[in-house]
Amino acid sequence: MKLRPITQREPGIYGPGSVALPAYVTGILLVGLPLIVVIVFSFLQRGEFGSGVIHKFTLDAYRTVFFETDLMGNQSLNFSFLKIIFRSIMLAFTVTVICLIVGIPTAIWIALQKKSTQRILIALVTIPFWVNVLARTYAWMLLLADGGLFNQIGAPVLLYTSWATFIGLTYAFLPFMVLPIYASAEKLDKSILEAAFDLGASGWRVLIRIVIPMIRFGIFAGIAIVFIPALGAYVQPSLLGGNKSMLIGSLINDQFGESRNWPVGSALAVLLLLMTALILLATRRRKLEFAS
């Protein structure tokens, strides 16, 4: 589960027409082509009745995202989109931090157990993947609703509050944080921890100075695969949070649904993609700095 750039490429093994061919086909068909469609759509005109597009180049979609036109026809910067972006980033950031706080100790604790116990615990962590995320979110709706289990044991009704969104997102993404951190913690040489204690370090110092720096690649990987999907999260904010405050994921969904503006939806998706790419680049650069 290590997300490290492949530094040495041997064309004979990894190039097209080799054993990697299925990967290329999958990548092109399922990632490349849809991506191209989205990028192209974002530069086209809205379809006549809202659905689809008219094949004519225009920057209207981006103009709609960034500017608003008042009744007099004057254009001014539109801050509502930026607000939504900001809100989405804050949500994804908070969820990532909660997942880190819960995930790091959990992963380290699992890695310190006996091998047989480790296998059982990791299987338990992955159990939620067996059930569709939508079904699991509906289950949370029942738990958090008025008269639901949490309400019955004294908790306030959390459904359709941003608390419900946080709970749902943390629940959904926690395994993605635990697994890569566990993968690197599991490789930790136990004698290195013993050496740290032997040199007089307290448990806390061993954690901060030795363990966390040594599992940092797992932590970076965990941050990337939690933060990025959390940024575009749609299911939990709409079902659990009641869509009370607009997020970028819901906004994009609306453009293809109720608002019937595919080019604007595509433009928003392209912007989200750019942001994600920037974040990834930033973390990758940090990784390389650490590695050298």
């Binding site: 040489d189 004698s191 290195i192 013993e194 050496a195 740290a196 030795i210 720096p213 040594m214």
Partner: peptide, 9 residues
């Protein structure tokens, strides 16, 4: 230690 157990970072 036999494996030296130096801190790699």
């Amino acid at each position: 230690f036999q494996s030296y157990a130096l801190f790699p970072h």
